[in-house]
């Protein structure tokens, strides 16, 4: 059992939760994730370790409530428990001094790429972080990100804050301005990672993406997390989650992520029904 120590709402449907997990906190490196199961009938889901405090023995996760398990997780408050947290899993980010690094985080991806950005910044890189969201109210972690990069740029799709447009447009401007970019890291929705990779490829700028395939065990035992990279099937959990963005078959990844769409909808409806029943009971 793993104790929830704090919970905070960052934006609509996005929460940040701090969990007591001393062994993971001590071991984790940038780019790694945990497998988490809230309760006994629960499903195992992968969540990135957004931050950790080895002294306090805590890890921080940031998640978006998209379906049954993340919604359930969203109901946990400080003092509640999570049944299983296994990790740190996946390869850590390859960190070295590359020179100038552009780190792109879209939506929730800002939180997922946070540790990567921080590690690259601490390794002495000049890190330009481009963070983006659909609109201002959905933009998360702006203040935190400022502390772990050299320059911060903000974009919103609707122009309600920062640059009006997509983060890829900001990246294009950077490239056009003639700045030498040694590495691009993109974390976020699959279409964003695909778009960034497509943009950087003709310039030959090395691009790393952190993939989010469906996972079950995340120990290399099932192959649910198969992704095609450079024409070869790789297991995302033990060989990733980070891959060369120019080699990834994003179309396949998008399709595979929809495998359980129907059943997920059913589960979601079940969750909402159960919650509204509980709320009714509390009212009574």
């Amino acid at each position: 059992m793993f104790k929830v120590l704090a919970k905070e709402r960052l934006a609509e449907n996005i929460y940040r939760t701090v969990i007591e997990a001393p062994k993971i906190a001590r071991k984790r490196k940038a780019g790694q994730f945990v497998m988490l199961r809230v309760d006994e009938p629960g499903e195992r889901i992968p969540l990135t370790i957004s931050d950790a405090d080895p002294e306090a023995g805590t890890i921080t996760i940031v998640f978006q409530t998209v379906g049954y398990t993340t919604k359930l997780l969203g109901t946990l408050e400080a003092g509640d428990y999570v049944l299983d947290v296994a990790g740190p899993l996946g390869h850590p980010t390859h960190v070295e001094k590359f020179g100038t690094v552009v780190s792109i985080g879209g939506g929730l991806g800002i939180a997922l790429g946070r540790s990567i950005t921080e590690a690259l910044y601490k390794a002495g890189n000049h890190v330009i972080a481009i963070i983006s969201a659909r609109n201002k109210s959905l933009l998360i972690l702006e203040e935190e990100m400022k502390k772990i990069c050299s320059e911060l740029m903000v974009a919103t799709d609707d122009g309600s804050y920062g640059f009006h447009g997509f983060p890829t447009q900001v990246l294009q401007q950077l490239i056009d301005s003639g700045r030498k970019i040694d590495l691009v890291v993109a974390v976020g929705p699959v279409p964003l990672m695909a778009a960034v990779s497509k943009l950087t490829k003709p310039y030959g700028i090395k691009t790393i993406v952190s993939l989010n395939p469906i996972m079950v065990d995340a120990t290399g035992m099932c192959g649910a997390c198969r992704v095609t990279v450079g024409g070869v099937t790789r297991f995302g959990c033990v060989e990733g989650p980070e891959f060369d963005g120019h080699q990834v078959d994003y179309d396949e990844l998008m399709k595979r992520l929809k495998t359980y769409a129907e059943q997920e909808k059913e589960m979601d409806a079940r969750f909402v029904a159960a919650r509204s029943r509980e709320i009714q009971e509390v009212k009574r």
Binding site: P41, G42, Y68, V216, C222, G223
Partner: peptide, 23 residues
């Protein structure tokens, strides 16, 4: 599927039991 994935979903994660949530 790999057999391991199919069997893990059904056995370990008990997808045959409607009380469990793994699809």
């Amino acid at each position: 599927y790999s057999a391991n994935e199919y069997l893990t979903r059904v056995n370990l994660m008990k997808a045959y039991n409607s009380h469990y949530v793994t699809p």
